[in-house]
Simulated assay, not measured.
Amino acid sequence: MVRMSAEERRESVIRAATSEFARGGYHGTSTEAIAKRVGVSQPYLFRLFPGKKAIFLAAADRCVDDTIRTFQEASEGLEGEEAVHAMAHAYTEVIAERPELLMLQMQMYVAVAAAEEAGDHEFGEAVRTGWMRLWDTVHLPLGADLNETTTFMAYGMLINCLVSMGFPPEHRVWEGLYTSARLEGRLEK
Rank of each mutant, 00 (worst) to 15 (best):
E7R: 11
I14M: 01
G28V: 04
T29C: 13
T31R: 05
T31P: 02
I34V: 11
K36Q: 15
R37M: 14
F46P: 03
G51Y: 06
G51F: 04
L57T: 00
A59N: 06
D61Q: 08
R62H: 14
I68A: 13
I68T: 06
R69I: 08
H85A: 15
M87F: 08
A88M: 15
H89D: 12
Y91G: 09
L101N: 11
L102D: 10
Q105D: 12
M106I: 12
M108D: 01
A111Y: 10
V112L: 01
A115K: 00
E117C: 05
D120Q: 04
H121W: 12
E122G: 09
E125C: 08
A126K: 01
T129N: 15
M132A: 12
M132V: 14
R133D: 12
W135K: 06
W135I: 10
H139I: 08
G143W: 13
L146R: 14
T149Y: 03
M153L: 13
A154S: 12
Y155K: 04
Y155A: 13
G156C: 10
L158K: 02
N160W: 10
M165T: 02
G166V: 11
H171F: 03
H171A: 15
R172M: 13
W174P: 01
G176N: 05
G176F: 14
S180N: 05
R182A: 09
E184W: 06
